[in-house]
Design a protein around this nucleic acid. Structure first.
Lengths: 164, 164
DNA sequence: GACAGACTGGACAACCTGATCAGCGGGCGA
DNA sequence: TCGCCCGCTGATCAGGTTGTCCAGTCTGTC
């Protein structure tokens, strides 16, 4: 089930990722000093990490909550058999409050993460999403608290397949 | 249901966020040129965005898939009433494959996003998670394809509460 | 009408980046 | 075992960028 050819990260790669994850504004030079390697090495590693798709971006992380979207919910949508999931996805893309969407196991099901200003506003967003014939059923779970905020640090640290 | 006091982003804030989201390595000076404002302005805005928690980080975005975790799954865990959800969360934190965890509506339920090397490996991860008395039941949905990758761009663009 | 806050445009020194180089060493195949 | 390839080192260079000031101007508010 694994896709592509996985990249193997060595100790230095992981240290670089961890370092930049902790202090993103650090800069290549300072990183090389901390890690006690040549600046060119850090640069080369970062280039490789981006080229191989391990690092997909350096964009600012936005907190929806901070800009007024304090409610997070998870919506599972069941679609009428074989009806255009594509089309529905395109519609969902047009809804800004839909932050993420996966197709999942089950007959034509979609899973989405959405945000809203309030519980009342959540209703509006959900209505937007499911107001279509192809949507057979939908169920919503409201996120109460983020027990473990999204992270990849531990995963990277653990990604030591063969050697150290 | 909204929390804290939401920050209002004006046109310039949104332009800055959008610009850096698209080209993170751009730098403050270049951004100020593109946006036709003084460099100090961009700097001040970015400072404010970070101070107010709108921008929570600039860390490298890691692709779990690229480092061999090609399977994503969503696990809902039901806990025995009132038994230590805290304790379970602490345990989940120790599992690197658990990328994210929320408490959700429902009697003591947790929702987690996890990754694994393969479907077989997924079983291992789930076993790690649910091997505890307090876990009454768990259900797993496997993510097949990322129809809409996580995004906040449209949300930021839409966050124009009052004025433009 | 005065004030606080924000933006501008400019200046400065210090620093960092991207690019390049020769030299060195380990790992690998011949 | 030898030789090659590749990656790391430490260094240089010019150019650009950052952090940090400043005075002047503008706008909305009390």
């Amino acid at each position: 089930m694994t896709t592509e050819t996985p990249v193997t990260l060595d100790r230095l790669d992981r240290a670089i990722v961890a370092l930049f994850a902790g202090e993103p504004r650090i800069g290549v030079l300072e990183a090389s000093r901390r890690l006690k390697v040549a600046r060119g090495t850090v640069q080369a590693r970062l280039d490789r990490l981006e080229r191989t798709g391990v690092v997909t971006g350096w964009g600012p992380d936005i907190s929806p909550e901070a800009i007024g979207y304090g409610v997070t919910a998870f919506v599972t949508i069941q679609i009428a058999q074989h009806s255009g999931r594509e089309a529905l996805t395109l519609r969902l893309e047009d809804i800004p409050e839909v932050l993420e969407c996966w197709t999942i196991t089950g007959s034509g099901d979609l899973w989405c993460r959405i945000v809203a200003h309030s519980n009342a506003d959540l209703q509006r967003v959900i209505d937007l999403m499911v107001s279509e014939d192809r949507v057979v059923r939908s169920s919503t779970l409201i996120g109460l608290s983020e027990a473990i905020p999204y992270r990849t640090g531990p995963l990277v640290a653990a990604a030591a397949p063969t050697t150290a």
